[in-house]
Design a protein around this nucleic acid. Structure first.
Lengths: 144, 144
DNA sequence: TTTATATTAGATATAAATATCCTTAATGAC
DNA sequence: GTCATTAAGGATATTTATATCTAATATAAA
């Protein structure tokens, strides 16, 4: 809904990295097993994340991946744009009409614009440090 | 983003019907040409709309389709649910975690819940009568 | 230097959404 | 009744996203 399944996998992997920053390299294998993501598929996604400099990867024995910058400097939206690509320059009309713009708006245009802005803020506001922390808290709560 | 391409086509067709209620039957062909929708594809979509009693269809000469109830009683959300199916009983976690619920929420859960509610309201609030009216106004504005 | 182990990269497979084709059935006009 | 016309329905094609497989490359440890 908000993003593709690939992006969802990417977010999961990135949160996992943020959660486990104490170990400096983590194997793609491990993450895939942890979240039940198809390994080879995650491997591809990880390559893309690496190309976008969101993570660094190391081959060979003791290899693995790690965040390429502090968790607090990585936002969900960065991950989504890296995987799904950035949003189109010219937003499509929600009901598919030609010539829909701010000045000549379709009936849903302005409402939808607000919602899109909300989504953008939501995804742009949360950073991996906060997310990881909250996920850890949540897991502790469930473990009780 | 909000709904599938099929749903978008369906919405376009339904708005067209609402705009042109004076003529009582309209050919699928005509709508497809108007909105540049693949004819055969729209034909399938129209069948689904018919099964969900949103429109009525008539075969043979002078055949075509028409709204099955007053435009003001048809909401965008009705169309989307008819085509894409209703939303899942149990909402998936946005970041794909297990055991994400209102009581044990993931970091994005509550924010996303609000946005989803906004979308639901947006799509549930607007009815075809209002939409058609506004589209007509918009077209007049563009025609000047 | 050899070996085991990770990621990388390219090719291929599967599934789902979108699109097309063709035949059948219904219906009004003649 | 015949014919033209319009939607219905079944089969197939294409595209995109998701998933899998295999070989190559890099690297640390033995």
């Amino acid at each position: 809904m908000l993003y593709s399944k690939s992006s969802e996998y990417a977010i999961q992997a990135m949160i996992y990295l943020a959660e486990n920053q104490s170990m400096n390299r983590i194997m793609v294998n491990k993450i895939a097993a942890e979240y039940d993501i198809p390994v080879y598929f995650l491997a591809k996604i990880v390559q893309t994340l690496s190309k976008h400099h969101l993570i660094r990867s190391f081959r060979g024995r003791n290899g693995g991946i790690q965040l390429n910058k502090p968790a607090k400097d990585i936002r969900i939206i960065d991950i989504v744009y890296a995987i799904d690509g950035p949003p189109p320059e010219v937003e499509m009309c929600v009901i598919g009409l030609d010539e829909c713009s701010d000045s000549v708006a379709c009936p849903l245009h302005n409402n939808w614009k607000i919602i899109k802005e909300n989504i953008r803020v939501l995804l742009g506001h949360e950073n991996l440090a906060i997310l990881a922390e909250e996920v850890i808290k949540k897991k502790e709560l469930l473990a009780q």
